[in-house]
């Protein structure tokens, strides 16, 4: 069994002794490129990492003038005025957080319901078509959601929801304060609902994947002792995937925070602090999308880039938390 390769031991192996020099010493063709290829792959991976680092550095450098000039007031002031060169970002920051949380509030129960339906109740014939349909909802570009929101959803919403609520509100009540606003359909709540429709399929798909990781044996044993579907989901499925499920929710939140086009169409784009559900507002992303290409002065650009950095820090925190909670069980 002397099959040791030549040159390893220093002794001449018995079997290879008769082989001609050229065969014994032949190294595999192209072996010289092995380290080169490895280096290329390493370079590509490093490039992705440095892209993320580059985003932080670029936003920091670009936004620095605004941070230096306005200091902490940049985060607390609601005055955003390109004419007088005063920039306070409290309005867009609040708009971003409010719309994202409202959309989560609406989308989460529905996404949960869809995921449970697909894993527990759906007839197997319908399982694939409905699953695909929900995923298709995730594939529709955000600009199409924006157009649909602007031309179809917002007018209908203003006519059938906003106006009746406005008219029915008793003067001077809290109700009136909450629903105050121009009934044109372009407001914080419309934007949140459009966002909810957008993040719903992502969360539903991720939750469904998570529910499928629960071993059937565990679920079936719960059914076996007579638990109802509600009890199975509540006391077996959910506890099993709790950690990852929170991650899935954070992932949806991350998308809602950074969504640009759909929101830009329906939020009304005013810079003040939103003071009711039906007042128009803005988010960080919509402000940048609307103003950056026509920024009137270097300070205006700097303020917008500074806004971008704020958005980056918020989403990075949320997404990092989401990924950490989800571990490797994450969707693309």
């Amino acid at each position: 069994m002397e099959s040791r390769p030549p040159g390893l031991s220093g002794r001449t192996p018995i079997t290879a002794a008769a082989a001609p020099e050229s065969i014994r010493r032949a190294s595999p063709r192209g072996a010289a490129f092995d380290p080169v290829f490895r280096g290329l792959c390493f370079g590509a991976a490093t490039m992705l990492l440095s892209a993320l680092g580059g985003i932080v550095v670029a936003l920091l450098i670009g936004g620095w003038p605004a941070f230096r000039k306005f200091g902490f007031g940049f985060f607390t002031s609601v005055r955003w005025n390109p004419v007088t060169e005063v920039y306070g970002a409290a309005g867009p920051i609040a708009g971003t957080l409010i719309t994202a949380f409202l959309s989560l509030l609406v989308a989460l129960p529905i996404a949960f319901g869809v995921a449970v339906f697909l894993t527990e109740f759906c007839p197997s014939v319908l399982r694939r078509p409905i699953g695909v349909a929900v995923e298709l909802l995730a594939g529709i570009p955000s600009i199409v959601y924006g157009m649909w929101g602007l031309f179809v959803f917002a007018p209908a919403f203003a006519k059938y929801v906003q106006l009746p609520l406005l008219l029915a509100a008793p003067p001077g009540s809290v109700w009136e304060a909450v629903v105050a606003g121009v009934p044109n359909g372009a407001n914080i709540l419309t934007a949140s609902l459009i966002l909810a429709i957008m993040i719903l399929p992502y969360m539903a798909a991720t939750l469904r994947e998570l529910f499928l990781t629960v071993p059937p044996r565990v679920r079936e044993s719960a059914y076996g002792v007579g638990a109802t579907p509600l009890e199975v989901v509540g006391s077996v499925t959910l506890p099993y995937v709790r950690r990852s499920a929170i991650g899935a929710v954070m992932l949806g939140l991350g998308r809602a925070l950074g969504e640009t086009m759909a929101v830009t169409f329906v939020i009304g784009n005013s810079h003040g602090f939103p003071n009711s559900l039906f007042s128009s507002g803005s988010t960080i992303a919509s402000t940048i999308a609307n103003e950056f290409a026509e920024a009137s002065s270097p300070m205006h650009s700097a303020a917008l880039i500074a806004l971008g950095l704020v958005l980056f820090l918020i989403t990075f925190t949320v997404l990092a938390l989401a990924r950490a909670l989800l571990g490797q069980r994450t969707p693309v």
Partner: peptide, 16 residues
């Protein structure tokens, strides 16, 4: 970081 970049807001990529 690749996973974070995967769902980073696209408008920030534009700014970058």
């Amino acid at each position: 970081m690749n996973d974070v970049l995967l769902s980073a807001p696209s408008i920030l990529i534009g700014l970058f």
